[in-house]
Amino acid sequence: DEFHFHWNGRDIRVRGDSEELRRLIEAIKRGELSEEEIERAIEILER
């Protein structure tokens, strides 16, 4: 699976399928994380 979302003017695409990944992306979409937490998560996910 590939998750695709927009954040902070960026087009983010992440491959993978796990419950943890889904929860993280939902939290990002709901605005539950700080900008710094989101940046760090995206860096890890894009590897």
Rank of each mutant, 00 (worst) to 15 (best):
1 D>C: 05
1 D>Y: 03
2 E>Y: 05
2 E>F: 04
2 E>R: 01
2 E>V: 03
2 E>T: 03
2 E>Q: 02
3 F>H: 04
3 F>C: 04
3 F>K: 01
3 F>Y: 12
3 F>L: 07
3 F>W: 15
3 F>E: 04
4 H>E: 07
4 H>F: 06
4 H>A: 02
4 H>S: 05
5 F>G: 00
5 F>E: 01
5 F>R: 00
5 F>Q: 00
6 H>W: 02
6 H>L: 02
6 H>N: 05
6 H>S: 02
7 W>S: 03
7 W>L: 08
7 W>Y: 05
8 N>T: 00
8 N>K: 14
8 N>F: 02
9 G>Y: 00
9 G>T: 01
9 G>V: 00
9 G>F: 00
10 R>F: 01
10 R>A: 07
11 D>A: 15
11 D>G: 03
11 D>Y: 11
11 D>L: 15
11 D>K: 15
11 D>T: 15
12 I>H: 03
12 I>T: 00
12 I>G: 00
13 R>V: 15
13 R>D: 06
13 R>A: 08
13 R>L: 12
14 V>L: 10
14 V>E: 00
14 V>F: 07
15 R>I: 12
15 R>D: 13
15 R>H: 13
15 R>P: 15
15 R>E: 09
15 R>A: 14
15 R>N: 14
15 R>V: 12
15 R>G: 13
16 G>K: 06
16 G>D: 05
16 G>A: 11
17 D>S: 12
17 D>W: 06
17 D>F: 06
17 D>A: 10
17 D>V: 07
18 S>I: 08
18 S>V: 09
18 S>Q: 08
18 S>A: 09
18 S>D: 09
18 S>K: 07
19 E>W: 04
19 E>F: 06
19 E>A: 11
19 E>C: 03
19 E>M: 09
20 E>S: 08
20 E>I: 09
20 E>Y: 06
21 L>F: 09
21 L>Q: 14
22 R>S: 10
22 R>Y: 10
22 R>K: 12
22 R>N: 08
22 R>V: 11
23 R>I: 13
23 R>A: 14
23 R>D: 11
23 R>Q: 10
24 L>N: 01
24 L>Q: 02
24 L>S: 01
25 I>F: 08
26 E>W: 02
26 E>L: 08
26 E>Q: 10
26 E>A: 12
27 A>P: 01
27 A>W: 06
27 A>L: 11
28 I>C: 01
28 I>G: 01
28 I>W: 04
28 I>T: 03
30 R>L: 11
30 R>T: 09
30 R>Y: 09
31 G>P: 02
31 G>K: 14
32 E>Y: 11
32 E>V: 09
32 E>L: 11
32 E>F: 11
32 E>S: 13
32 E>H: 10
32 E>D: 13
32 E>N: 09
33 L>R: 04
33 L>T: 04
33 L>V: 09
33 L>G: 03
34 S>Y: 06
35 E>G: 14
35 E>V: 14
35 E>Q: 13
35 E>H: 15
36 E>Y: 12
36 E>C: 06
36 E>I: 14
36 E>L: 15
36 E>K: 15
37 E>S: 12
37 E>F: 10
37 E>T: 07
38 I>D: 00
38 I>C: 02
38 I>A: 05
38 I>Y: 03
39 E>C: 07
39 E>H: 11
40 R>M: 10
40 R>F: 09
40 R>L: 11
41 A>H: 06
41 A>R: 13
41 A>W: 13
41 A>I: 15
42 I>V: 11
42 I>Y: 04
43 E>D: 14
43 E>C: 08
44 I>W: 15
44 I>Y: 12
44 I>H: 13
44 I>P: 04
44 I>G: 13
44 I>T: 15
45 L>H: 06
45 L>A: 05
45 L>P: 01
45 L>N: 03
45 L>I: 10
46 E>C: 05
46 E>V: 10
47 R>L: 09
47 R>Q: 12
47 R>E: 15
47 R>T: 15
47 R>N: 14
